[in-house]
Design a protein around this nucleic acid. Structure first.
Lengths: 185, 185, 185, 185
DNA sequence: AATGAATGAGGGTTCATTCAT
DNA sequence: AATGAATGAACCCTCATTCAT
């Protein structure tokens, strides 16, 4: 692992523990066992570390969601698959998920999404419009659909990480189906 | 309005504008037209202001949710009514809602809930268990149910505040119903 | 002496000893026996201290030069009087003079001169033009005239402060006359 | 050009652009296309580069002043020739002149003059004493004479570099004569 | 109750200098 | 000779908190 990766890894951990402001250059350097100065050899500023880390994490997430081409499925199966991918990603990468949450709720966040993610969202929007026309999908903005599906996956994953058993005896597939049906007509 | 209330009101505004860290004692004192020193007569620390404000806001929220005794209704109607109350509360008190969001995504948040809210949740839990027994409700922890219903109301309200039209042509009642059905069997 | 004046006085001393960059907030606070933080109660930045101090010092200098209305005299007597005033000011306020020199040779200096000084220079320019027309004064820009007269006063005063006897047996009046004659035809 | 010379040349340029403090080892290494580390093979410290560069530049200046043996001339012609040489040197080597100005107005400057310059000054002093004895020259220390003549040449050259026309219609010879006459009886 | 000057630890950042390679 | 990653002290500045008044 090179030094940039070490800095990213350490920052990810610290933001989970202390938040964005609580993650200081001094803390990063101490935990990573490097000098504060050297951080500025690899990054121009603390902000740059945070922004680049977010970009990396967002790309990881987008890659996971995309990996089985959900857009080729029927609208319900598409959302179910995305839901399951999101849930699993969050459980397996909970520090990344927490980081995304914190970042997006901070002044750092300027709605700058990665190209990969934007393209995916555009294609999903198109699919949505078609489904709305066909009378399969409720007429809702994509942000609302996300709030009703993907966002719920994240919340449930968060409960999982807190040590709860958020699904109990229900299977992931059943949960995904129940939740995704709420956006259908 | 007494001085404590002035400090709470000012803090609520400033956190909406500048975030928790950006809300300094100096800013509070300037906007509230009081001296920085006197704040420490009413509170032991900045953290105490934040925590107490959160508690107050959470209680306001709980009070609103409770006001029409939703627990007396059928399980679906109960959740629908809670959902609608939550959605409306957030839209009508968006500064409080933003504060809650910021607080819960910060290292300040330590899952400490208010007594009023705890009592309500306990009663709701009991109702849930009965419904699960009756085969009406999915067997899920209350936190998951909240994630699938109330949390979604807040997310949609947030979109409303951002200027989107999150429900489009759908009525609040329909949305509440669709979403709350996802927790039923 | 109030705290702002103490900060100015300390800064003036330190700039004489260590230059503008070498004069740190930490050094100021130590020598003035105050905390670093309080400096920012009176000034917004280190730069503001430096700029305001320069403005004050420049005004002191301009006041001294103006005090006997040299502009009412003949051109030679006018410059002689200015010369003598400048020389005496520098000898009596050598720290201020050194500060002016350092400031004007630094990136801090943005040719922003005080209103009082600008007005004086405009009136002096007018007097110069008249004298040039009358064939009394060499046709030179005012900056050159300053370089040939006032600037020399400062240089000689600097030698005085270094412990030399820069005029030896020559009187100030004779020196002023010899030097100021160099700009006459 | 060997590496030491490259470092000197680069430093001269950078000091003109950024000042002494703004000229960092990092900037020197980047502009000179060498590593920061190797600079410490040729010099012990940044300060040493600055001091040696100053010494070199001062010697260049002294060499130029000396080149036509002004000491063999009459006292007035001697000073006129020195004056003209200084003025021309500054105009033709303005980066060196700016460096000298910056250096002498910085805490780096410790009045350490080069051997070449010292020898020249000693010979000039001797010539001065003879002229004072003969009643041709004012009884002044050599530093004062420099302030009244050579220093003025530099100031006027500086104005030339700033874009002014410091002599206007006056010839260099006339200016040199007017100024140098101020030190004669 | 109230003021606001004062403190000082800690923030992000820079940079002369060192050293393993 | 040469590299450039690495160090760490010092920079300017912020701000929660204290305290004399």
């Amino acid at each position: 692992m090179n030094k940039k990766e070490i800095i990213f890894k350490t920052t990810l951990e610290l933001v989970n523990e202390f938040g964005l402001i609580g993650t200081t250059i001094s803390k990063i350097s101490k935990r990573a066992n490097i000098s504060p100065g050297i951080i500025y050899h690899y990054f121009n500023s603390k902000d740059e570390i945070i922004h680049q880390l977010y970009k990396n994490v967002e790309e990881d997430f987008a890659r996971e969601i995309n990996k089985d081409n959900p857009l080729n499925l029927s609208i319900l199966d598409c959302y179910k698959q995305i839901w399951i991918s999101a849930y699993n990603f969050c459980i397996q990468n909970y520090k990344k998920m927490v980081f995304i949450e914190i970042y997006q709720n901070s002044p750092y966040f300027k709605d700058c999404i990665s190209t990969a993610r934007r393209e995916f969202l555009e294609m999903l929007s198109k699919k949505n419009e078609e489904s709305i026309m066909k009378g399969e999908l409720k007429d809702l903005p994509i942000e609302s659909i996300y709030a009703m599906t993907g966002r719920v996956a994240i919340e449930l994953a968060r409960l999982h990480i807190k040590g709860l058993n958020p699904l109990k005896s229900n299977s992931i597939e059943d949960m995904a189906e129940s939740i995704c049906r709420s956006i259908l007509i």
